[in-house]
Each structure stands twice: as structure tokens, then as C-alpha cells.
Design a protein around this nucleic acid. Structure first.
Length: 381
DNA sequence: TATCCGTGGAA
DNA sequence: TTTCCAAGGAT
């Protein structure tokens, strides 16, 4: 079969298939570019089923670009709580402010304008321009690269940027005149429902007849992809500091810096268990020593904490790190020996606004990463 | 180019 | 249980 013919067949069959079987998803019920944009950011590295409830809550709370631009960042993060990759939320709001100020609150459709928005890369720019505005732009994500690598038997490593660029050129040739929106969505829909990473459902595939990957029996070896490195372990000691006096019944939390891991999120105070753990050479500190180390670290930051009793352990896996956490409970009182010094300085720690005493019901007002939600909910149980 | 950035579902 | 990896972007 001629290459051109193979392409024409693919586009025609895919489009016809998509318009019949396409799923009813919340962001497909409108042509609102703002909604499409929100959905595309949320869908980055995140499954459809996970995104749906977040999307519905988000557009209810922030129905317009301006509503999002004008919201406090903490509220945006709270709405994103549990979804992960929290910089997406912060970049999204920064971009909403860009749209409000530079484009009068109207989502732009131009290539440069869309691609210039914070948090919008090559994929998302193409997705917004094609899906929301039906402009002929490639939206090449993992689904698309999997589908194309199989159908056209492309054995380039999809982790390489030039492979994505190659696929983008291919998609530009494949998009039928005036059908960019449905075609790009169809490509992703096929990858999500039929041309799945494992056990692709070739027998129900609309383009199986001319799929080179399947014909040559290589569908299970495609796409070619370099393996990710396993996450490195980090051993951390975590504190539940119980307030006393005016803070009785409360627990101390702190806000993370606005860059890096879990930026802008709230957490329980925690420190490395030991300064430098060589891989595979972890030796746990005895409980008493661990409690002392963590207590001393808290006091050094002018946080009143005495005692230290092991209450639970927790694990949490990120993309590149795995936290092994040992959790200790403290009384939020100034320890005896250092009392005068600590008492005099402890207030300074709270002046930054980075620390708060909270009750269980106050958790609604702060955005926590899942690992701390689990610990706090378990503790307040 | 390689690393950093979350989470949970599926097999 | 472990492993993979999902509608990626920033640096």
C-alpha cells in the first residue's frame, strides 16, 4: 500500500470511528476555550477518570478566566489538592492573569500567544488550538505517539524530543481539512480506549487492517521507550506537635516554599532522618534518638516541642523520590533546659505566616499533599 | 540531554 | 507485590 494511501485510510477511518464512539466527557460539552484549557492542564500525566471530578469542581469555583485570575492562590491550590504536579495549578493561574491583562480575558488562538502562556507546552498549545478553535495544529501526547508508532511502525524512542517533532509533522499531514478538533481527539481516544499500552484491542480497531505494527506482529514492542529511573529513597522524621494553652487541641503545620517539590502546599514539619544516606546503606535510628533529633531540629527553628513519641509510619512515592516517614508526637511546650532562649524567640517562627496551628476542621482551608492528608486524618481519627 | 515535578489505577 | 505509566512542562 502506498504511503499516501495508508495515511488517507487512517485519517478517514479514525474520524468516522471517533464521531460514533466518542465518550461524553465534561469538557466536551462546551466549546469554551477556557474549559478546554483547564481540562488539558489537568489531563497532563493524569487519567481521565481522576480528572473528571476535579474539572467539575474547578469550573464551578472558577467559571471564567477572570474568576481564576482574581482568586487567592491558596484557593486554587486547595481545588487542586490530591491531583499532583501542583505547579500546574500555580502556572495555570499565572497564565489566567496573563490572559486577563494581555488579552482582555479572552483566550487567544494564535500559535505564539497560546504557546506563550505559562504551563502550556507544545502538546497543550496544539490541543487548545485544535480542540477549542479547530485550527490545524498537532497535539502529540503519549497516546498519539503510541498509536502512530504502531500504525506506521516508527521505532524511534518516544522519549526523545525529535521523535515528537517527527510525529507532529506526520500529524499535520494526517489532519483532514477542517477536522483538526475531531481528528486530534480521535487520535487520543483511540490510544486511550483501543490502542492501549498493554494488550491493545486490535480486533476492534478501526484501522487495524493497515496497521504495520500489528501486521508485523510488533504491536507489543511499540512504542520504543527508555525506562524511567526508579525513585531514590529519602528517610524523614515527621512531627505532630500538639498545641498547649491557647493552641490546645491544635496541631502545627507549615507552608512549603513556593518553588520545588510540593511548592506552596502545607505540611507537617519534617527533617531528614540522617544527613546523607548512601543508597542501600540505610540503618534506622532508634526511636529515642530519632525523636530527640527531630525535637532538637524543631527547637532550633524556635518551635516549642518536648517529648516525642512514635505514633505511626508512612510511605509516599513521587515520580523521582520515595519518602519513608516516621511520625512522632510532641507536646508543644518549651523544653526545660533551653526554656528562656526558646521562649523568647519562638514567636519569630510564626511571624512569617509560614506556620499555623490548626484543628481538624481547619484542614478545609489549607492544601495538603496526599501523604500529609493521610497522616493528619489518621491522627485526628 | 537529564532531571525535577504527584498520584493512583491497572495488570 | 511490583512495575508501568497517564491528554507534559520547566529548567
Amino acid at each position: 500500500m502506498e504511503h499516501f494511501e495508508q495515511q488517507r485510510y487512517f485519517s478517514t477511518e479514525l474520524l468516522q470511528w471517533y464521531v460514533v464512539i466518542k465518550r461524553d466527557l465534561p469538557w466536551r460539552r462546551h466549546r469554551n476555550p477556557y474549559f478546554i484549557w483547564i481540562s488539558e492542564i489537568m489531563l497532563q500525566q493524569t487519567r481521565v477518570d481522576t480528572v473528571i471530578p476535579y474539572f467539575n469542581r474547578f469550573i464551578e469555583k472558577f467559571p471564567t478566566v477572570e474568576a481564576l485570575a482574581d482568586a487567592p492562590e491558596d484557593e486554587v491550590l486547595k481545588c487542586w489538592e490530591g491531583l499532583g504536579y501542583y505547579s500546574r495549578a500555580r502556572n495555570l493561574q499565572a497564565a489566567a492573569r496573563q490572559v486577563k491583562e494581555q488579552y482582555g480575558g479572552i483566550m487567544p488562538s494564535g500559535k505564539e500567544e497560546v504557546a506563550g502562556l505559562k504551563g502550556v507546552g507544545p502538546y497543550t498549545a496544539g490541543a487548545i488550538r485544535s480542540i477549542a478553535f479547530n485550527l490545524p495544529a498537532p497535539a502529540v501526547d503519549g497516546n498519539v505517539m503510541r498509536v502512530l508508532s504502531r500504525y506506521f511502525l516508527i521505532e524511534e524512542d518516544i522519549m526523545k524530543i525529535r521523535t515528537r517533532k517527527h510525529m507532529e509533522e506526520l500529524v499535520m499531514q494526517l489532519i483532514p481539512e477542517g477536522r483538526a478538533s475531531d481528528f486530534n481527539q480521535g487520535l487520543m481516544e483511540l490510544g486511550a480506549l483501543v490502542c492501549t499500552p498493554k494488550s491493545p484491542k486490535c480486533l476492534t480497531c478501526p484501522v487495524m487492517e493497515h496497521c504495520r505494527g500489528r501486521i508485523e506482529g510488533k504491536e507489543d514492542q511499540l512504542p520504543v521507550k527508555t525506562k524511567a529511573k526508579p525513585p531514590r529513597p529519602e528517610y524523614r522524621l515527621t512531627a505532630i506537635v500538639e498545641g498547649t494553652g491557647e493552641h490546645a487541641g491544635k496541631v502545627l503545620i507549615r507552608k512549603r516554599p513556593d518553588t520545588g517539590l510540593l511548592a506552596g502546599m502545607w505540611e507537617l514539619p519534617h527533617v531528614p532522618e540522617s544527613p546523607d544516606v548512601k543508597p542501600g546503606a540505610y540503618v534506622p535510628l532508634p526511636d529515642e534518638a530519632a525523636a530527640d533529633r527531630l525535637g532538637a531540629a524543631l527547637n532550633a527553628e524556635h518551635i516549642p516541642a518536648s517529648g516525642g513519641e512514635h505514633v505511626m509510619n508512612a510511605e509516599h512515592t513521587f515520580s523521582h523520590i520515595i519518602w519513608y516517614m516516621r511520625v512522632y508526637r510532641y507536646d508543644g511546650q518549651v523544653p526545660e533546659p533551653a526554656a528562656p532562649l526558646v521562649a523568647a524567640e519562638q514567636a519569630a517562627a510564626y511571624e512569617t505566616g509560614n506556620y499555623q496551628w490548626i484543628r481538624k476542621e481547619d484542614m478545609e482551608r489549607y492544601a495538603f499533599p496526599n501523604v500529609f492528608l493521610r497522616i493528619l486524618n489518621d491522627y485526628f481519627e
